[in-house]
């Protein structure tokens, strides 16, 4: 019976036909060759890196918590930047979010707000930070403004999407009772977006704690600045202590954010 049946079988190709499958595979290999060759990777230096990694690791152990005051000051500054930036972001995102909601804002306002959001989201926090450092000098103010700007843009985008997804029924119902514009907003739009918005804001607080650790690389304050300085002084055991501090801080922030958002539901 089995003689009548084929004894070979290959799974059908993932990309439709076998020809196309081979083409994709070939393209992937070609890309790999091209990218690796253009990156002018020095194999000897790369291999030497593994030895240096071991060396670096040894110099990081044990982490030096002796300068804990410096560490604590940097972490507190990061946290303060994150809190203040989230607050500013929440306040500023409300008008921008309403302006970027298709169903509330007039078309030119909507387009301008959306354009601002698209451009603002493109640039990494570090790029924004370097401009604020040029304008306001080194220190946490530049970091605060960076995080406030990116929070505003992020929260406004989320708020705009929530507003656009609001159900029309309740709005009509409240309007049908003869309520004015503000009453309509307070009684039908706000209840629909409030819980989600608070959740987004808490999420952004968590994200700001993460980002506050990095804007210091270009001198915008916080623990990142301390870390950057310790790296440039080859002060690796202190850097290890800072890294552990950052991991603890970020993990704590994530746990807090998850906890609050679970309670909101």
């Amino acid at each position: 019976m089995s003689a009548a049946h084929p004894s070979a079988w290959r799974p059908p190709p993932f990309f439709g036909t076998r020809g196309r499958q081979n083409l994709v595979l070939l393209a992937a290999i070609a890309y790999l060759v091209w990218s690796v060759s253009t990156l002018d990777i020095d194999a000897k230096r790369a291999l030497a890196g593994f030895g240096r990694a071991a060396d670096l690791f040894i110099r990081m152990i044990p982490p030096d918590f002796g300068r804990w005051e410096l560490l604590l000051r940097g972490m507190t500054e990061s946290l303060q930047m994150a809190f203040a930036a989230t607050l500013a972001g929440v306040v500023l995102s409300i008008p921008l979010g309403i302006a970027a909601a298709k169903n509330l804002a007039p078309r030119p306002v909507y387009l301008a707000a959306r354009g601002l959001i698209v451009v603002g989201r493109t640039f990494h926090e570090v790029i924004i930070a370097i401009f604020f450092v040029k304008l306001f000098g080194f220190g946490p103010v530049a970091g605060l403004l960076t995080l406030a700007l990116s929070s505003t843009i992020f929260l406004a985008k989320m708020l705009a999407e929530d507003i656009e997804n609001v159900r029309v029924g309740p709005i009509e119902a409240v309007r049908a009772t003869g309520a004015g514009f503000l009453q309509v907003v307070v009684y039908s739009v706000v209840p629909q977006v409030l819980t989600r918005s608070v959740g987004t804001a808490i999420y952004r607080l968590d994200a700001n704690v993460r980002h506050s650790t990095v804007v210091g690389i270009v001198g915008a304050g916080g623990i990142g600045q301390t870390l950057s300085a310790s790296f440039s002084r080859y002060d690796y055991d202190f850097a290890a202590a800072i890294l552990l501090g950052i991991i603890a801080l970020v993990a704590l922030g994530e746990w807090f954010s998850d906890w609050v958002r679970r309670r909101l539901r």
């Binding site: 089995s2 049946h5 084929p6 070979a8």
Partner: peptide, 14 residues
């Protein structure tokens, strides 16, 4: 790699 013995494949078709 989905390389099964030919006998198994034939049995599967049967």
């Amino acid at each position: 790699l989905r390389r099964y013995p030919p006998r198994d494949v034939a049995n599967a078709f049967a």
